[in-house]
């Protein structure tokens, strides 16, 4: 055979070989690529079809930082300043980490008052009040929940940075529990996952059902899975996803883990925290007895009627 003909033959052979290799190469790229990218688009469709209120989601992916906090101690000086603002019986609990106070004259709250009007009441009558934002009302006891902020973003559902204000039947604030955090350290901001990714994490974990609706615009705040205890703790930028107005999911902004919360549970836990705080306090026995009764009455009021 002529070299010319052999060459033609070779060209054909290698052409076929190359087509095969190319096909192999593409399938290798597919299989080794991060698996997230591919099914994502179709999954996006599924979520769009099944979950309502997606237009509430902000489009941008914000940047934010890890922040390390430690508990702020309440001191006797703080109490002096506090009672000068408004007459109240304030008690320091839990080695200074927690404050419980009862107003001599309850503070009336208009039923239709705005968020900022409530926040003004807090600023006027409580310590460091300007650091707190109104979060919502516990449907069971009517208690008002305020979260401490950092960088004007709320610290979500932390038993170490909140105000729980208890109200009476006439819609007046009678007493409150407060805890506060101090920033120790802040890392460089990093890109967070998008709010949509946060929602799809919830969807993939089977937390969202067909009647789930995102009822508020998700906002960035800070959250830690781990209790602060006595030391320091890292808080992570997180999305709050509100489902059907009452259920809250806090989704961690970098890795997407989440935890679910609701206001009644938060109030119950904060009263229990105050009860525990009685164990490490310098109060007189008389005060202790009084607080013990007060807290168990408060805990009693958190029970949904009919629940025993």
């Amino acid at each position: 055979m002529q070299w010319n003909q052999i060459k033609t033959l070779f060209i054909l052979c290698f052409l076929i070989l190359d087509i095969f290799l190319l096909q192999q190469f593409l399938s290798v790229i597919d299989s080794r690529a991060p698996s997230e990218s591919n099914p994502y688009s179709s999954q996006e469709e599924v979520i769009k079809e099944n979950i309502k209120g997606l237009d509430n989601l902000p489009g941008e992916t914000p940047k934010d930082s890890f922040i390390t906090f430690k508990a702020r101690d309440f001191t006797e000086d703080d109490l002096t300043e506090l009672t000068a603002r408004r007459e109240q019986d304030a008690f320091i609990l839990s080695d200074g980490d927690l404050l419980f106070s009862q107003f001599k004259e309850p503070i009336p709250i208009e039923a239709d008052s705005t968020k900022s009007e409530k926040e003004v009441k807090v600023t006027e009558n409580m310590l460091f009040g300007s650091e707190y934002v109104y979060w919502g009302q516990d449907e069971v006891t009517g208690a008002l929940i305020f979260f401490q902020t950092n960088n004007s973003k709320p610290i979500y559902y932390s038993q170490s940075g909140f105000i729980a204000a208890f109200v009476n039947k006439d819609n007046e604030i009678t007493s409150y529990i407060q805890a506060a955090l101090d920033e120790v350290d802040r890392k460089e901001p990093k890109s967070m996952i998008s709010a949509f990714k946060a929602v799809s994490n919830l969807y993939n974990a089977g937390e969202l059902t067909l009647d789930s609706e995102i009822t508020e615009q998700p906002e960035v705040g800070y959250y830690s899975f781990v209790d602060l205890n006595e030391g320091q703790q890292v808080f992570i930028p997180s999305w709050d996803i509100t489902i059907n107005e009452s259920k809250h999911y806090v989704v961690m902004g970098f890795e997407g883990q989440f935890s679910s919360h609701d206001n009644p549970m938060f109030i119950r836990n904060s009263i229990r925290r105050a009860q525990d705080g009685l164990r490490t306090t310098l109060l007189e026995e008389e005060d202790m007895d009084y607080l013990r009764n007060t807290f168990s009455d408060l805990l009693e009021s958190t029970r949904v009627s009919g629940e025993e």
Binding site: N4, I11, F14, F25, V28
Partner: peptide, 27 residues
Amino acid sequence: EFLKTVALSILIAASLLLTLGIWNYQP
């Protein structure tokens, strides 16, 4: 004939590259 030689060389080179690619590809 010259074009055929070039085409063959390219095909051979491509097959080598693809083979290496399959072995070593890391995303």
